[in-house]
Design a protein around this nucleic acid. Structure first.
Length: 245
DNA sequence: CCCGTTCAATAGTGTGCGGT
DNA sequence: ACCGCACACTATTGAACGGG
């Protein structure tokens, strides 16, 4: 990826003498915290490590960013690497999944091999797509771990900390944005959306108050009514969907 | 036994009030 | 401004009941 700008003669001279080895070059990785809801539980995708270090332990999907070999070839962008990993690990098309950058983890010693700076992303997979996830093509090497079981789980590297950070981010964003949209099927009822909030935030939501919150989202134009009614055990509930962005 | 009515339980919907 | 709580109202289901 070239900058395309024009260099002055002086700058050109500097670049010719520039030796990358004179500067620190830590490795850069992207790691993904991929959430979904299965069986009324918020879960995160883990893959079993095939190689040392932490061989055989559960870890977040991710990998090294392709950084290229020269000034001309500087490799792929961070977001590109994240989307590539997402597709490789889940088989899901990146366009169908909400993904955004989470945080940068760069603590010295977090990887026993060398200095690795991990740029992390979190993704939200709609529950209706989650069953199709085949991590690396091998189900025995992937699992959707309920975040509730996080405390007891053994995880490679600092991945527990990364997941906790992702969890806090998702919970925070749920409060002020429409991010829950990516955790419900395309159409949903108000109680269904309320259940998603309850699951992610791990506390019951008052039906009346949630309705007011929901009405605010309606007023903001985030949501619109969808055709039909959802038949439930009780009276049929109105069906809604999120407006296309 | 079949059919219709009644009634309690459940759940979606909506509002008022008071507290922070 | 938003939240927790209480409460009212409504639509539907299914069990119970009772008459033909």
């Amino acid at each position: 990826m070239s900058s395309g700008r024009r260099e002055s003669a002086e700058e050109k001279q500097f670049l010719e003498k520039y030796r990358p080895k004179d500067y620190a070059r830590p490795s850069v990785a992207v790691d993904l915290v991929i959430f979904t809801i299965i069986d009324a539980q918020l879960r995160v995708l883990l893959v079993k490590r095939q190689e040392h270090p932490f061989k055989g332990e559960w870890a977040l999907p991710g990998g090294f960013v392709r950084v290229g070999e020269s000034a001309k070839d500087q490799g792929e962008d961070l977001d590109t690497a994240a989307r590539r990993e997402l597709q490789e690990e889940t088989g899901l098309e990146p366009e169908r999944v909400h993904i955004e950058q989470l945080y940068t983890f760069g603590r010295s010693g977090r990887d026993p091999r060398m200095r690795v700076i991990a740029v992390t992303y979190f993704a939200l997979v709609r529950p209706d797509l989650a069953p199709f996830v085949k991590a690396g093509g091998d189900a025995s090497h992937a699992q959707w771990l309920p975040v509730e079981a996080l405390k007891k789980a053994e995880l490679a590297f600092d991945h527990r900390e990364i997941i906790e950070t992702g969890l806090a981010r998702v919970r925070g964003k749920l409060e002020y944005s429409g991010i829950a949209f990516d955790l419900v099927p395309l159409t949903f009822t108000i109680p269904e959306l309320r259940h998603v909030y309850s699951i992610v935030l791990d506390r019951e939501m008052d039906p009346g108050n949630f309705r007011r919150k929901f009405n605010r989202m309606l007023d903001d134009g985030l949501i619109e009514q969808a055709p039909g009614k959802r038949i439930t055990a009780s009276k049929p509930a109105t069906v809604y969907r999120f407006k296309r962005r």
